[in-house]
Design a protein around this nucleic acid. Structure first.
Lengths: 158, 158
DNA sequence: GCCTTTGTTGAGACATGGTGTCATTAAGAA
DNA sequence: TTCTTAATGACACCATGTCTCAACAAAGGC
């Protein structure tokens, strides 16, 4: 990830903390630095390991306490793929993507938005007597067409 | 749930076990009886409690070992709502619903279908260069409107 | 810089959902 | 009925995640 993007994310996080009257601690700085030194999705435990590589003083509790701040500030996306742990994704766009397509073949994860789907979801929720608060759409897909063209394999997809 | 349905499910499960050369044990009989004595979704721990009400000899291990058999035999559907535990739904085999709405307030789960959403999903998948194989849509919702009308509370929702 | 206030932290106990081990039990076959 | 061995119960164990609390340190005032 580019340094510029990293610095920008850091600035946004500090801004978020200031707005909430939360303190800008070394640990929080280390964690956001760690998050934005990768493009990949990660788990809480991975983030803990990476952060502790940078600074042994970062504790598990702090990582688990900081992750909700990162998701609340929209700098990180929380994703659930039915595993007993969650995945997180550094998110530099402002779009509130909660829809993911996971390729069965190359494991690539694509985020996407759809106003149409969102609208239908709200309609259905309302019809059933509920107010939709959040949604999670997961598509399992195959890139075999791309693969046959030599355009998609483990290397190019990740 | 009607007795007929329950008996039918039991028969199917026994058939499944026989095909796999698995033994038809008392515990497995108790567990499938328990599962199909309700229409409700349940968690593994709930199933354990219910089964133990019928027969104290059923152990946690056996419940956790039997659930994969039930999902494999398509008699029960496993659902993940991002909580640290899974939900299971009896009598799944007859309905192809993969969309669920779960109420944050009363934990009610509603299954629904939407051809419209499915169509859009396929379009999006194609646009991104993939073939959509399966999909999983979960809506987190609130029944507070119903609640304020006195139409929905823990009792009526479950 | 030095205090003071108080949010934040690290360590580790704890909670919870689930798995593994192993001696014992019982299903199904002969 | 006896034999073989899959299945079981009890419980230790694991993993992810949360909670508590004494100690620390950020931010602001002096």
């Amino acid at each position: 990830m580019q340094k510029k993007v990293r610095e920008e994310a850091k600035r946004k996080f500090i801004e978020f903390l200031e707005k909430k009257d939360f303190r800008i601690t070394n640990q929080r700085r280390i964690i956001i630095d760690t998050v934005f030194s990768t493009d990949k999705h990660f788990t809480a435990e991975q983030l803990l390991d990476w952060a502790r590589e940078k600074d042994k003083s970062v504790s598990r509790a702090t990582v688990y306490r900081t992750l909700p701040l990162l998701t609340e500030s929209k700098l990180v996306h929380e994703m659930d793929f039915g595993k007993p742990y969650k995945f997180y994704d550094p998110n530099y766009s402002d779009s509130p993507n909660h829809n993911h397509l996971i390729c069965e073949d190359c494991e690539k994860i694509v985020e996407f938005d759809s106003d149409k789907i969102e609208k239908i979801e709200n309609e259905i929720g309302h019809k059933l007597g509920f107010t939709v608060k959040s949604q999670n759409l997961q598509l399992s897909a195959s890139c075999d067409v791309l693969k046959s063209k030599g355009a998609c394999d483990k290397k190019t997809c990740d």
